[in-house]
Design a protein around this nucleic acid. Structure first.
Lengths: 229, 229
DNA sequence: CGTTATAATTATGTATTCCTGATACTGGAT
DNA sequence: ATCCAGTATCAGGAATACATAATTATAACG
């Protein structure tokens, strides 16, 4: 008996509803900037573009709305949510608080292997900095933050953080924020790592809060400048 | 031209979509415990009960899902999300962090009139405590927390907090948490008020964090006991 | 020529229908 | 008696159809 009879395509057993896939698709379209801020979302047009019907699309829009990525005016349709500098600043304030919390928890809950992994990431971060590779630097930078969030061992916090990060990282304003103060950022990450290794919750939290606050301030300024155009 | 032509019935100009009203309705049904944890949500049944069609109901379910109040299994329908003690503990950890953040911000941003109002609420809280009025005590207690959140002047934080509170306050576990340690709670609130009046951000934050942590621990224990039955 | 009112069109909101996957039941074989 | 296969039934997922509000265009009036 051969195994060839078994359907090989069942590698991903996960049944995903259409509206879920559409949510993901639209979400990345918004985050990648393919759908720009304030853009009206024409249901019919999107439907034939994605080759789906309106029902699951509308369900997806509801989901993205409650995630804060889409705004809906009754009887007037949906559009990509516009991020005002004020909202952006609020978001960063929030993210800062969450990341401080995560850093504090991570300091007391992190395993040795996690700390080791984090140290490796930090080393790589520094080499990317030396190499002047801004793009990969930013990616790794976000990964490090995500790693620390995960180390908090609070999945509710983790998913919430991820959601807020999506709202904030639209248009790569955050990237600008970190790139604007490259050297400081590397140093702050180093200090944070040391605090985590020392299991100093308070210090780790403080460093993280200041770090995010600085990044946020730069990003907010970048956003304000762009809006002023 | 007279003004009599203008339709008078437009007192409430807000056009609310059906799915929005249904979301609100279901949300309160879940929070009030009318729909118990784990209960299957039969779409057809609910539709004829609420006298609506399935489309807006399903949209509402998607919204409640992304709020964490409803769980959806593809092709197997929706049910009221069950709150495990672990998730509940995580939620409280999160809420604690958010409320600390809010308290810190409130200490530096609160207006005099807000502080005055808060002091009045505290006075009333103490009288409710003396009178042994547990029900109204709990209500006012929540109002005070909401008030402090609002004083943070961060609307994103405020709405997020409200959402998490809904997830956590199902079944009134939180009420049990505060009632279990009534006297301490009153004192902590008093100390918090004083820190806010002194505009001592750090202290206000610390008190708040400890306060929520204690409340949460009691609530988690209450939940675990109930689950154990 | 501009303004306003009304009609036509378009897009959103809701209902209904169709289809597909899941669960329960029946019957047969071991 | 139990376990498996096959079928029937049912509920959820998606598409289509219908209703209604909003927008635009057009025409009439000042």
């Amino acid at each position: 008996m051969t195994t060839s009879n078994l359907p090989r395509k069942k590698t991903s057993m996960k049944r995903r509803s259409l509206h879920e896939e559409i949510s993901d698709h639209l979400r990345s379209m918004i985050i990648e900037g393919e759908l720009p801020e304030g853009e009206r979302i024409d249901e019919s047009a999107l439907c034939e573009q994605l080759e789906i019907s309106r029902t699951p699309l509308r369900e997806a829009l509801k989901v993205l709305h409650s995630e804060g990525l889409v705004s809906i005016e009754p009887n007037r349709g949906a559009r990509v949510a516009v991020l005002t500098p004020e909202e952006f600043a609020e978001l960063f304030e929030l993210i800062g608080g969450l990341e401080r919390m995560a850093a504090e928890l991570a300091a007391s809950r992190a395993t040795d292997s996690e700390l080791k992994k984090l140290a490796q990431m930090q080393t790589r971060l520094e080499s990317l900095y030396s190499a002047g590779d801004r793009h990969n630097y930013f990616e790794l930078n976000q990964d490090i933050h995500r790693m620390i969030i995960a180390m908090s061992r609070n999945s509710t916090l983790t998913s919430l953080h991820e959601q807020l990060l999506m709202r904030a990282s639209r248009g790569r304003y955050m990237a600008i924020g970190t790139e604007d103060r490259w050297e400081e950022s590397v140093q702050e990450h180093q200090a944070l790592l040391e605090a985590l290794q020392a299991k100093d919750s308070v210090k780790a939290g403080e460093i993280m809060l200041e770090h995010v606050r600085h990044t946020g301030d730069c990003a907010v300024n970048a956003l304000k400048l762009r809006k002023a155009v």
